[in-house]
Simulated assay, not measured.
Amino acid sequence: MRGFSDDERERITEALVEAGQRQFAQFGLERTRIKDITDEVDIGTSTFYQFFDSKEELYVEVLLREHRAFHTAAEEAVEDVDEPREQARAVLQTMFEEVESNPLIYRLIVEGELRSLQSRLSDAERAEIVDSIRGRRLSTLEEWVDDPAFRIDDREMVDALLRKLVFVSRAKNIPVAANTGPEYEETRDVLIDVVVNGLFSEPRDGDR
Rank of each mutant, 00 (worst) to 15 (best):
R120T: 09
E100F: 00
I12M: 10
K35E: 13
R89C: 08
P182G: 09
K172C: 07
R2V: 07
Q93P: 01
E142A: 09
V99F: 00
L16E: 06
V130P: 01
E125V: 03
R31S: 14
A19E: 10
N179I: 10
G20M: 11
H67V: 03
P84Y: 00
F24K: 03
A178T: 11
R9K: 13
A77P: 05
F150C: 10
A15S: 15
E86V: 01
E75A: 01
G206Q: 12
F24T: 08
E83A: 11
L161K: 06
V130C: 03
S139G: 02
A160D: 09
V194A: 14
R2S: 12
V194R: 12
E75G: 01
V176E: 15
Y49F: 14
S5Q: 08
S139Q: 07
V158T: 12
E40K: 11
Y49A: 08
N173M: 15
V176D: 15
Q93I: 07
G198T: 03
G135W: 00
N102K: 04
L64A: 04
R163P: 09
G44D: 04
S119V: 08
G3Y: 06
V91T: 00
E56K: 05
Q118P: 06
T13Y: 03
E202Q: 15
I133D: 05
K35R: 11
F70T: 00
I174V: 15
G28R: 03
D205M: 14
T180F: 08
Y59R: 00
W144G: 00
F96S: 00
L162M: 10
A124R: 06
Y59G: 03
E76D: 12
I129A: 00
A171I: 13
E8Q: 13
P175C: 06
P84G: 00
T180H: 08
I133Y: 01
T140A: 09
D82Q: 02
N102Q: 07
E14A: 09
T32P: 05
